[in-house]
């Protein structure tokens, strides 16, 4: 009995001492959009690894895509007195009250992957989506060069709801291809960023257009859907696909020599890591940029093996 009591006291003591964290061993709270998407899990792992290295503690919560749950988690972080909050906003507008609560409590907020559109946010750490769009545009331009070296051809664009990330990818893409008047956009459709719609929308576009040279999809799921539609129509030799994300399945499609030829890979693990590093800078009173872009990389048949090894989602 006595031993039991001592044991309990020791455990409680340990917990209490570890909880009084200094800035050197910070406690961070991370609230993610969804644990049902490997992208976010990879982001979390990146953050956890970076924090483990400096001996900090990561408290975590899944918002299950519900901003009400995200608000509840932030409130819990605040009353626990975390040093900093890493926020992956479910909804840029709906999350503002949560950011304001953290502001009032004097707890700095660093957003990762998706920003809050109000309240005081120290920094946003996210993929450079403009660069991702540009990489797609550049690959496409290079491949569409005719005998005279002039890029020319019919291009299909599969976009999605106009959230910032999507708009930036499109902006980057168009900034490259608008230089080449012989590249014609023959169809722009909303494929909802998912596989099912990517498939159905592409099916219809294929019926309506007898001559397509390339497809730009704003993310891998819709590109993979389009790939299935193109294969089903037997037109895989006519066109190629470029897209953004760097999902494992997309890389496998690139490796297997399908008409899926290139994806601009995001590195969520790196976003998580840089998120923690940025949070540490904020805690140490250093100035940080409001937007911290994380590099994206062009994955093509030439370098796909190297990227497949690091694929996390």
């Amino acid at each position: 009995m006595k031993k039991g009591i001592i044991l309990v006291l020791v455990i409680v003591g340990l917990l209490v001492t570890t909880s009084f964290a200094s800035v050197e061993k910070p406690v961070m709270g991370i609230s993610l959009i969804s644990y049902y998407n490997p992208f976010f899990l990879a982001l979390r792992d990146g953050a956890k690894e970076a924090l483990d290295e400096i001996g900090g503690t990561l408290l975590e919560s899944d918002s299950q895509q519900d901003v009400a749950k995200q608000l509840a988690a932030i409130e819990s972080f605040i009353s626990r007195g975390v040093d900093v909050i890493l926020l992956n906003a479910v909804d840029s507008e709906g999350v503002i009250p949560a950011v304001e609560l953290a502001n009032e409590a004097g707890i700095p907020v660093v957003t990762v992957d998706n920003d809050a559109s109000g309240g005081d946010v120290e920094a946003l750490v996210a993929s450079d989506n403009v660069l991702a769009g540009k990489l797609c545009g550049e690959y496409l331009v290079e491949k569409l060069k005719n005998e005279d070296g002039v890029p020319a051809g019919n291009v299909v664009v599969l976009d999605a709801l106009p959230v910032t990330g999507v708009l930036n990818r499109l902006q980057g893409f168009y900034s490259v291809i608008q230089e080449y008047p012989q590249i014609r956009i023959v169809s722009t459709q909303n494929a909802q960023g998912n596989r099912t719609d990517g498939f159905e929308v592409m099916e219809n576009i294929l019926l309506a257009n007898s001559n397509i040279d390339a497809v730009f999809a704003i993310n891998d799921p819709s590109a993979l859907g389009a790939l299935e539609a193109i294969d089903a129509a037997g037109r895989q030799d006519e066109m190629f696909i470029v897209s953004v994300d760097g999902a494992k399945e997309a890389m496998e499609a690139i490796k297997n020599g399908t008409s899926f030829e290139m994806t601009a890979a995001q590195l969520p693990t790196l976003i998580g890591k840089i998120g923690v590093e940025t949070a540490m800078k904020v805690l140490n009173g250093e100035e940080v940029d409001r937007f911290i872009p994380v590099d994206v990389f062009s994955v093509t048949p030439e370098n796909v093996d190297e990227f497949l090894e690091m694929a996390t989602f």
Binding site: Q64, Q65, D66, V67, A68, L71, D91, G94, I96, P97
Partner: peptide, 16 residues
């Protein structure tokens, strides 16, 4: 109450 707390109406909230 939820709308006031979030200062917004959320079409995806309340699942489950």
């Amino acid at each position: 109450i939820q709308t006031a707390r979030l200062n917004s109406g959320q079409p995806l909230t309340g699942e489950g």
